[in-house]
Design a binder for these strands. Structure first.
Lengths: 241, 241
DNA sequence: CGAGGGTTTGAAGTGCATCAAATAGTGTGG
DNA sequence: CCACACTATTTGATGCACTTCAAACCCTCG
């Protein structure tokens, strides 16, 4: 399980890559354990690698001149990042930092680039992934525009619930501060909004553990402000490939 | 100029398509003139075609159950939409409506799909376009998060200025109401924010015409809240292919 | 000219941010 | 194992930006 090749083979996105590609990855990729806070690269850096997360969490973000930052995305095991630099003259379009101790694999972008160029199936898989991401972002924009803070938290919890084993008990995967920025709000607002969500939907909160009492009540509260096509409740069907 | 084939040939995105594809498009595509307000398709509809805009403006949006809508994008001549349905089981992920009288070309999605599958260069061009769009959306999210209403308007004006001939005189391409929703604000807020922008940066407003007196002042005001890598001023270099 | 939207202006309300301070949690060295 | 330091989280008080509701104005087009 711990060899890089098999890690790649198990990902849908790489299911059609050539044996050559896998062997090159096996030889050239490097797996690293990085602690929380480690900066992987900065926006604008020359891009030599793309990255695959095996475990932990990574935060992608951009910073303004005055120091405030916009979260682009927060990723975890099985997800890749930095690959779009192929289309950006090999400069990363955002910065990346480890949000929770992570094991990440560095892979030369050149390998991916030539594989995409020579293997049409991989290019198509990539296109599919991009389309999925695009939809994900559309949704994110919609959420920011139409949902208020408690609703966004509810939606976030529902998605966590769907990916976990026990549908009703959720463990926040990282800092509440980071959840707040992921959802585009201040930590104080997050704290207050979570309390309000508790009052409205009867969830139980204990530190970083949340228990959903009534999933229908929660989704009714959170998803009423979502577009009719994508109730949060059905997100799983939409998100999985 | 009025034949569909040459319209396609002039688009960067289709510069590598096969002669077969162009001929099929010539035979099977239909060009239509549609008036403002015409609904082209609704979110969830079965997707048979993708669309190319030759002139006018088209609004992409999604609606919530309670009737409020989220603008996905607003497109004009030379841009395509509906093509992502290829990756969505041939159901449109948003609704489309003519925002200003438009000439649009309907092209069977099946043609594009097989061209992408058989012509790797086209798949790569598509990937590039998707990557560009992704970046565009990242930027949009950042703007919504970090810029206030007057700054967002300023940024919008700067982008319009760059695409026009006369850098200093801008004509709003559509309703102020629509500009407002494009920028994620109410029409009233737009009106007031534009007034404030006038006070702060010395632009002159006359109906739907705006004259920029000092472009540096405007970009200093608008772009101070953007990430350091993408000052609005340099957007053109980033956006063009 | 009159009807109908689009646009502006005013007044009031709301949600979130900000500032400040208290409290809880976590890891450290003694 | 405790005390300390440091950070995360909560709570309170206040301010601001944007929304909402309402009304006036303006423009265009039949």
């Amino acid at each position: 399980m711990s060899d890089i090749k098999s890690t790649f083979q198990n990902l849908g996105l790489f299911s059609n890559v050539s044996a050559d590609f896998l062997n090159s990855v096996q030889n050239q990729a490097i797996s690293k354990n990085e602690p929380k806070g480690h900066v992987i690269f900065l926006s604008g850096d020359e891009a030599k690698n793309f990255y695959l997360i095996r475990s932990g969490w990574v935060k992608l973000f951009r910073e303004t001149l005055d120091g405030s930052q916009a979260i682009v995305d927060i990723l975890t095991g099985g997800q890749i990042f930095g690959e779009t630099a192929i289309f950006e003259d090999f400069a990363y379009p955002y910065s990346a930092e480890v949000a929770e101790d992570a094991e990440i694999v560095l892979v030369p972008l050149s390998l991916l680039k030539s594989e995409i160029e020579n293997n049409n199936k991989v290019a198509l898989d990539m296109l599919g992934a991009m389309a999925k991401y695009r939809k994900h972002q559309d949704q994110e924009l919609e959420h920011r525009a139409l949902q208020n803070a408690p609703q966004r938290i509810g939606c976030f919890l529902l998605r966590l619930a769907q990916s976990g084993d026990d549908q009703s008990v959720i463990h926040l995967p990282y800092d509440k501060m980071l959840v707040a920025s992921r959802l585009g709000m201040q930590p104080e607002t997050f704290s207050r909004a979570l309390k309000k969500l508790k009052e409205k939907t009867g969830i139980a909160i204990n530190g970083s553990t949340v228990q959903i009492q009534d999933i229908d009540e929660l989704s009714a509260f959170s998803c009423s402000a979502c577009s009719s096509m994508f109730p949060c409740k059905d997100l799983k069907a939409q998100k999985d490939t």
